[in-house]
Simulated scan of single mutants.
Amino acid sequence: MPDPSPDPRLLPVLLTVVEALATIAFALSGLLEAARKRLDAVGVCVVAGLAAFGGGTLRDVLLDRRPFFWVEHAAWLWALLALCIAAMAVLHARHFAPTERAMQWPDALGLGLFSAGGTQIALAQGMPAIVAVLMGVVTAVFGGVLRDIVCNQIPKAFSDHRPYAVCAFVGAWVLVAALALGMPETAAVLLAAAVATGLRALALWTDFRLPAWSSGHEPND
């Protein structure tokens, strides 16, 4: 009788696909930010690279994981350079607003994919659940944080009040719970990514915003 369990070789392939799709989505967000700031070609490539690779690199540093995921898949660097060159050739100021609106949805997909993939990588290294979840959030969020810091602005993940890191956090816990309940790893990763992406998409669609913390004093008091 054939073994009904999923092929364990599928998970590494899935994680590679997950990171590739998320990397493209986040690289595009970095390109748009760099273009708005009127950076030169080097600045565009650096900001796009930080957005695409920053969160995963920080995760790999914290987990002492080598080689870094973009070193292991060096072709992604060529893809990033090609994307930057193409964007600088065809993107103009009039394209920024519609492109930014359209990019919210791939960005939501990248958030879900990176949070699920980062959490699974940490779990595979034997990290406790809470540490793995935080590694998933770092993977999903900190590329955008580094992008915004380099562009001299408060990171949007901390300031626009739309749930972002919260969505990654919930999605990562969905992965932990699904694995604890015996769900196959591949299905659990896909479920977690879908939950995080769905929550972010729902927040964008409804324009739901988290309340701002207030100390009870106006800034000019």
Score class of each variant (00 low, 15 high):
70 W>E: 12
220 N>P: 06
130 I>F: 05
209 R>M: 08
148 D>P: 12
176 V>P: 01
186 T>W: 02
165 A>R: 00
178 A>Y: 00
71 V>C: 11
146 L>H: 00
31 L>P: 08
107 D>N: 11
15 L>P: 09
171 G>M: 00
121 I>H: 05
118 G>E: 00
5 S>F: 06
18 V>C: 13
115 S>F: 03
55 G>S: 07
102 A>T: 14
120 Q>V: 05
108 A>R: 04
178 A>S: 06
46 V>P: 13
118 G>L: 00
124 A>P: 08
150 V>M: 06
218 E>Y: 14
214 S>F: 05
6 P>G: 04
212 A>F: 06
111 L>E: 12
1 M>P: 14
122 A>E: 01
52 A>Y: 00
108 A>C: 13
180 A>I: 04
32 L>R: 06
63 L>Q: 04
131 V>F: 04
67 P>E: 09
213 W>N: 12
221 D>S: 15
209 R>H: 09
182 G>V: 11
211 P>Y: 00
31 L>V: 15
101 R>C: 08
173 W>R: 03
22 A>I: 10
67 P>M: 09
170 V>P: 11
102 A>S: 10
203 A>F: 03
87 A>L: 04
195 V>C: 05
106 P>Y: 01
221 D>G: 15
126 G>A: 03
36 R>L: 11
15 L>D: 12
146 L>I: 05
155 P>C: 02
24 I>E: 09
24 I>C: 10
123 L>E: 02
190 L>Y: 03
170 V>W: 00
34 A>R: 08
210 L>W: 04
94 R>P: 11
68 F>H: 11
178 A>I: 04
169 F>H: 10
177 A>Q: 03
14 L>H: 12
161 H>D: 10
91 L>S: 07
198 G>S: 03
193 A>I: 06
204 L>K: 07
77 L>G: 15
157 A>L: 07
133 V>H: 08
50 L>V: 11
130 I>K: 13
47 V>I: 15
152 N>H: 04
158 F>E: 06
198 G>I: 06
93 A>S: 14
25 A>N: 13
109 L>A: 14
28 L>C: 14
78 W>D: 14
117 G>S: 05
182 G>Q: 00
217 H>Q: 12
178 A>F: 04
192 A>H: 02
120 Q>A: 12
166 V>L: 06
8 P>F: 00
69 F>H: 13
40 D>K: 10
199 L>N: 03
58 L>F: 05
101 R>M: 10
201 A>W: 07
122 A>T: 02
54 G>Q: 04
32 L>G: 15
30 G>P: 09
133 V>K: 01
127 M>I: 04
133 V>L: 07
111 L>Q: 05
145 V>S: 02
190 L>H: 03
212 A>M: 14
35 A>V: 08
207 D>Y: 03
112 G>T: 13
96 F>D: 14
134 L>N: 01
5 S>A: 12
208 F>N: 08
29 S>M: 04
53 F>Q: 08
111 L>F: 02
211 P>F: 00
208 F>D: 10
153 Q>L: 07
152 N>E: 11
58 L>P: 06
162 R>Q: 12
27 A>R: 06
27 A>D: 07
32 L>A: 10
77 L>V: 15
120 Q>M: 15
192 A>V: 01
